[in-house]
Design a protein around this nucleic acid. Structure first.
Lengths: 161, 161
DNA sequence: CGGAGGTAGCTGCGCGAAGCAGCCACTTCC
DNA sequence: GGAAGTGGCTGCTTCGCGCAGCTACCTCCG
């Protein structure tokens, strides 16, 4: 096939962070998805385990808020994690609306394993960036994300640190 | 409500480019989507117009390749653009498989208008970054994206040829 | 010149992610 | 003790992306 420049991306797209981010996201989703598939996991499972590991047992609603996951998905994902023996789900005696979800030892093991796998993916992701820029790149992504999450910051002094 | 740190994101997610990118993408999609909705456009429409403007008339397949849009969507999007009078679609006399898509004057006008709107979105997006870092940010996104797009490595060989 | 293989346009389907609505049980606030 | 809010759960919808398959057509090669 003659090279007609068929795969040259219009600069009006190519130069836009919005386009780059969304394009990048589909590639990343694919990459991460493959890693999770190989382990029989899904993205949500890992997020929940990570939240449990870092903040300890929590209600499903709290987990959803922390991981930015909708309640409906938390129900399903926690159910699957429970079936796999990675978490325990028990009603909260102090508040009978709640289910307290707890990480099991096996859950911690799987979390650690998946963490290693995911770290590899991150390396693959940031490979083209010089090591010195990677940390900054992550930091920038975080700042931009935070900004979009709550666009009316104004004078809200005390951070939630 | 007591502040139990319910919205603190686990660092295992928060520190990962993969998570940040996908989260960011959903926010960006929402933002851009709102801008496009207000103009009765969709993302694809703009991409196609931009490609036509930059590279001139082209077949639908070439447009898809340039904008990273699947053929099936190109069909639909070009149809809508044609109905709106922003492009012309005519069979190529030299190759009757092809439809040559051409930007109309009105299409150019709409492209310019949407470009301005989108530029505002980019500003909103990169607002939290110091001006000096924005260009670098875009550049980094581009490099990472290019890297993921052609990762022909490792003897894994999902044979394509 | 005729068949093989590739390309273009088009239709249709499936997947993953996100989000909303509504229901019931229960807690909390007034 | 009533109203409002929260937590768990089920169900539905939307959107973006991508693949499979089909027909028409072009090109290459024997």
């Amino acid at each position: 096939m003659q090279n007609t420049g068929d795969d040259r991306v219009p600069t009006l797209l190519r130069s836009r962070p919005s386009w780059l981010v969304t394009q990048l996201a589909t590639q990343v989703t694919r990459l991460v998805g493959e890693a999770f598939d190989a382990a029989g996991f899904r993205r949500y499972h890992y997020a929940l385990l990570a939240a449990l590991d870092e903040f300890g047992p929590a209600s499903q609603a709290a987990l959803g808020r922390r991981c930015r996951i909708d309640r409906s998905y938390v129900v399903e994902a926690v159910g699957e994690l429970e079936a796999a023996g990675l978490v325990l789900r028990a009603p909260d005696p102090a508040d009978r609306r709640r289910n307290i979800v707890t990480l099991t030892g096996e859950g911690g093991t799987h979390l650690a394993a998946m963490t290693r796998t995911l770290d590899d993916v991150q390396d693959e992701l940031t490979a083209p960036l010089p090591a010195a820029e990677r940390e900054q790149f992550v930091h920038q992504l975080g700042r931009v994300l935070d900004h979009l999450r709550e666009p009316r910051v104004t004078g809200k002094g005390p951070e939630i640190s």
